[in-house]
Design a protein around this nucleic acid. Structure first.
Lengths: 198, 198
DNA sequence: TACCGTTGTAACCAAGTGCTTACAACACTG
DNA sequence: CAGTGTTGTAAGCACTTGGTTACAACGGTA
């Protein structure tokens, strides 16, 4: 029996999801190492042994947490709109919010087989491909990577500098500014640079 | 006596520095939580209790580690050259190297009073000031922050994507590309955009 | 009803953590 | 020489960690 004296309802799917939600919350706010399996289980109101039953290990739980949003984003966004969508969503995200935390979590995690790899495979790589395809320049790939780097920096800046200009500015204004420059960098093959990627 | 049977030479300054060097090495490669005080002491070939004698706590050691390079860079670079210097050094840093690790360490650390704050105060803030001063535009501050964000993204991309285009490309080519675009963004008040900030 | 696989629980383990403390070895000063 | 403050050492404390295990409660089936 749990601390309240009753035995929990038997619902594997529900407890698995509760665990996943709690882990996402704690990993993104405190980081991986500063979050214990017991913390996660407590927040999910679940016995800590169940983490190992359902996910195998703490590390695997992290994998599950970090894989989900990447796949979701890629699944629901057509490749042609990736750039504009990402720029707008990046600059519209709440400063200090969860998605920025998740990004940092992924980046500072283990390089191989970890969160960063998923992010690279599921988001960055398709994005670069889409950007590269837009231009005929010989150094298209480099330029695409420069743009991706900017996107990364923008996301982190918006997340970390909660009272900076980027956080205060109108998302649409900033997006336009960025997209203009990006268009220049990628080679303005379009006549209406502000409406690219549509 | 230490493990080899002898007593260590008495040199407070030297052991303190050895500790600092070892901590920098381990913190940047493994991260803060995955590095134990005993690990640091072992690498420095010093008794672990000395960490607490000289730095007070593990957290304070991190502070010392992270404060040093920021102050050094700002001290030896004239404000007018900050941008060009940073772009060039960022794009010339060895992929996967120490400075990128230090950056990630700072960003994922605690927000308040931690490494990120020092970095902001000692590097980012003066840089933004220098960039803002260059332009008469009303949204100069926003544009400066966009540039800083790019710099951050570039540093991280170069660090993390060790076999990406940015890592492979000629640093000077990439720098020129970036500086060109940045000059456009900040308003091309100069006649020779590639030689800005000199 | 009896059975059995699934789900949940508590107690536990071995290893490691940051940090403290009592003490020994040394280098100075008088 | 004795006395004193500094530097280094070993042992240990109190606690947390990820992970395991033996077992109880349950729900479906036959």
């Amino acid at each position: 029996m749990s601390e309240n004296g009753t035995t929990r309802k038997r619902d594997a799917a529900a407890t698995k999801e509760a665990l996943l939600a709690a882990a996402t919350e704690l990993f993104t706010t405190r980081g991986f190492d500063r979050t214990s399996v017991r913390d996660i289980a407590a927040l999910a109101e679940v016995n800590q042994a169940l983490v190992f039953r359902y996910f195998g290990s703490k590390e695997a739980l992290l994998g599950a947490v970090v894989t989900a949003p990447g796949r979701a984003l890629l699944a629901e966004t057509p490749p042609g709109r990736l750039l504009a969508t990402l720029v707008r969503e990046t600059l519209a995200q709440e400063p200090g919010g969860a998605s920025g935390n998740l990004l940092l979590l992924a980046l500072s995690g283990p390089q191989d087989g970890g969160a960063a790899e998923v992010l690279e495979r599921e988001v960055a790589e398709p994005l670069r491909a889409a950007l590269t395809a837009r231009t005929a320049r010989p150094d298209a790939e480099l330029r695409a990577e420069l743009v991706c780097a900017w996107l990364l920096g923008l996301a982190l800046t918006r997340h970390l500098r909660t009272d900076g200009q980027l956080a205060k500015a109108d998302p649409e204004t900033a997006s336009t500014l960025v997209l203009d420059v990006v268009t220049t960098l990628l080679g303005a093959e379009s006549e209406s640079p502000t409406a690219t990627d549509r």
